[in-house]
Write a protein that binds this DNA or RNA. Sequence first.
RNA 1: GCGGGUAUAGCUUAAUGGUAAAGCUCCAGCCUUCCAAGCUGGCUAUGCGGGUUCGAUUCCCGCUACCCGCUCCA
Length: 529
Amino acid sequence: MSDPKTAEKHDTALMEKIVSLCKRRGFIFQSAEIYGGLNGCWDYGPLGAELKRNLKDLWWRRYVHGRDDIVGLDGSILTHQDVLKASGHVGGFSDPMCDDLLTKERLRADQITPQSGTVLRFSGATHEESGFSVERSYAVLIREGEDENKARKTAKQYYGQFLKDGQVSPKKLELQGETTEEVTDSTRFNPATGSLLTEAREFNLMFQTTMGASAEDNDPKAVAYLRPETAQSIFVQFKNVLETSRVKLPFGIAQIGKAFRNEINPRNYTFRSREFEQMEIEYFCKPEDGLRLTDEWLEDRLSFYEEIGIPREHLHILDVPDGERAHYSKKTYDIEYDFPFGIQELEGVAYRTDYDLTKHKEHSKKPMEYFDEETKEKLIPHVVEPSAGCDRTVLALICEAYEEETITDEKGKEEKREVLRFSPKIAPIKAGIFPLLKNKPELVAKAREVYDLLKPLMPVFYDEGGAIGRRYRRQDEIGTPYGITIDFETLGENGDELKDTVTVRERDSMSQERMKIEDLPAFLLRKIR
RNA sequence: GCGGGUAUAGCUUAAUGGUAAAGCUCCAGCCUUCCAAGCUGGCUAUGCGGGUUCGAUUCCCGCUACCCGCUCCA
């Protein structure tokens, strides 16, 4: 991995502008905002919903409709606990963590080297002159050959944390209630400092629930989970799809859907949220094709990002090294985007081998084999998984499209223009339709005609309020690629030649061309497809 | 989970222990022949909960959310 400190520029001010625009124009709102917000959850407003839908539609059209080797699936979110036991999410998933009480360093509880020695335990500390006192149990481990006064110094530093303003030196504290005990092979102390650790806590990232109205809270059979990834429903339904869809290896099963992880620390706007949507394909193949297909899928996915307006120069491909990959994966590429808050993962293209199908075969005791008619051989297919974060991609699209442009008008006056340069394919609104003036009924009527013509074909927005320039800018800010203006020439005031023509203003160049109304649908449909 | 910061209208900011101000946006109207013009009018705010106080948006405590740095991210 590249050094994040040198490679990344963290542009907090830019991110704040983007967040503000998203709220102001109705792309993204905080979930339950009027109740103070829900940590790590976000709602898409009218424009955000359109944007996200366009992204998902493009993906689905490209892979499910556009290819004959991929079929779709829409699995349930509530997940049988056995599915996640088989996949390893229950049990092997959570890491017990504990913190050093003195240094606050966080440690994996299962990786602490057991230690033996004498434990010096205290009940608190006081300082008579200032009236300071604190009652808290604390302990330090003294290993063989170590000085017990050093341990007392450590304890004083610990209690010193509770002093205000450092008016009293921790050294002057009186330790209270000192006792000693011998321990062997204890993992309750930080090997580096000897300081007592907090109790180990499990961080299980899955949302658990109980099924059935009469389910008792403690009934282990009633436990179900919100799926932590969409992939498992594909593996679990592998056999059903195989038997009903007449597919042959290699083939893929695609799914777009919600997944849930109880993240310890949601961060960076919608980037790491607790509820998120994935766009995943499990592409099943013969074992010998796995590595090659992983590379091919990486290329395919990069060209998808290019298609939606994220050029590959702005993407980073991380070939995840041994030891950092998930244990089941033989090869993983992370596709990362250069967000204002740093370079972060959009998608993982992972070669998962036959791990998942094998696990489900073991746990369910149901066959997961594929029978190859040509070679007359039974095999458990391997799988390549391009798994993209839908919300992350939406955020990347917005970041990529956002620009604050300084433009100079004819009088030489400089002004700022905020614009979202969405590709017409993903833009929430495809065209704004404007009568040049609101108080001329003929213009308004004609503009309404144009609006009615286009409305059934694509999302368009009619606007008659304010000066024409203002209306253009409003659409710039939400990324509408075209502005269509109905003026007096449309009505035939300058001769029949220009009658029933309108100006089409292009968002990025702000240039205009005249076009016949009857040509508008074909022109626009070509651009947005 | 730890440490630091922030929270006033849709946005950006101001002020105050005693009627919360402005710009932009938005809405309505007038005007306006292509890039945020002008005029008139209008809607809208102290995150939540306690405490101190005659009175708290302001001071104190707690909570929540967001941002930054760690940590975490199967």
